[in-house]
């Protein structure tokens, strides 16, 4: 099975983009790809421990998804980790700005990472940004 490296940078706080990033991470990971996700800016708040805060719709599709049985993006990210061995890294800069430490984040996230290290690891792979 051909596998490749998929690196996903998530900065959005919108439901549609978080959903698409989570779909790519989960399906990519369970299909044998080496998936790394970098969570920064507006995305990180949704990964605070115990958070079930809904992400607001960006457009009509996001509104359409509300009330349908679309798999929650947090669950898809967690399945990417559990079922596909994906790694999700909180951005250390975003954590500094939010004034939080790793204990405040979901336990299934990896260790905080800086962009330099993430980019070094992403070398030779495809990078997707949401």
């Amino acid at each position: 099975m051909a596998s490749s490296k998929i690196s996903i940078i998530v900065v959005t706080g919108s439901h549609e983009r978080l959903q698409m990033a989570a779909m790519l991470a989960s399906v990519g990971a369970v299909s044998g790809n080496d998936v790394s996700v970098f969570l920064s800016m507006n995305s990180l708040q949704y990964f605070l421990k115990g958070s079930d805060q809904p992400a607001p719709a960006e457009g009509s599709f996001g509104k359409l998804m509300d009330g349908k049985n679309v798999p929650p993006f947090r669950m898809l990210f967690e399945q990417a980790v559990d079922l596909g061995g994906a790694k999700l890294f909180p951005c250390s800069m975003a954590m500094d700005v939010m004034n939080i430490d790793a204990d405040a984040l979901q336990p299934w996230l990896g260790e905080p990472l800086g962009l330099t290290r993430f980019l070094a690891d992403a070398q030779d792979g495809q990078v997707y940004t949401f």
Binding site: M23, S26, V27, V30, N69, V70, P71, L76, Q79, L83
Partner: peptide, 16 residues
């Protein structure tokens, strides 16, 4: 009733 990729992820959970 579940949308993509819900059914696939459920299958994979059970396949494991």
């Amino acid at each position: 009733g579940s949308f993509c990729p819900g059914p696939l992820m459920e299958l994979i959970g059970w396949i494991k």
